[in-house]
């Protein structure tokens, strides 16, 4: 039975406001962490955007908390893809950071690992391909299941399985100080 087919079941404004508050409280830190790991500019602002975009779609959530989580990270993932697409069109000039340049020294990754954990893991993730970084972030930070990750990334569960194996292999290579293929 489809509960959403009944108009009376739509959350009122107060209900939506409460749902948004709860969703924000439960998931905003995860969304922020996910966006930071993805290298999005101004992840705090994008986090706010994600939940603003969630608001009119609260009534479309099916599947309870699983559905809410999937929808929230679908919106966030779309923002990440948009960000990288936009950046690939118009590269942003940034200050050169020797410590983050894997070409400058074979110990770059070692240095990355040795630095502050948060900055180092963001730098490590930065060395992965976009989809590899995404799959790890969605599985580890967002705690999405294989199937939810497949839904968010619009791929099959089998493809996600393979992708996360490649991501782990690449991450291991980076951590071990190898040169990524």
């Amino acid at each position: 039975m489809d509960a959403l087919s009944d108009d009376a079941s739509r959350p009122s404004h107060d209900g939506s406001a409460n749902l948004l508050t709860i969703a924000y409280r439960e998931f905003s830190a995860m969304v922020l962490g996910y966006l930071r790991s993805s290298g999005v500019d101004d992840p705090e602002a994008v986090t706010q955007d994600v939940f603003v975009a969630l608001y009119p779609r609260l009534g479309s959530i099916t599947g309870g908390a699983d559905g809410a989580r999937t929808l929230i990270f679908s919106i966030a993932h779309a923002r990440v893809v948009d960000h990288h697409r936009k950046r690939s069109r118009s590269p942003v000039s940034e200050a050169y950071l020797a410590a983050l340049d894997p070409r400058t020294s074979p110990s770059a990754e070692d240095e990355v690992v040795a630095r502050d954990g948060e900055a180092s893991v963001i730098a490590l993730m930065d060395l992965l391909a976009n989809d590899q970084r995404e799959v790890l972030a969605l599985r580890i930070i967002a705690e999405l299941s294989l199937e939810q990750t497949a839904q968010v990334m619009n791929r099959s569960a089998g493809a996600i399985k393979q992708l996360q194996l490649r991501a782990l292999a690449n991450l291991r290579k980076q951590v071990d100080g190898g040169i990524a293929g």
Partner: peptide, 10 residues
């Protein structure tokens, strides 16, 4: 977030 040297997007 450092954004240089990101892996190629796929």
């Amino acid at each position: 977030p450092p954004t240089s040297q990101r892996g190629e997007g796929t």
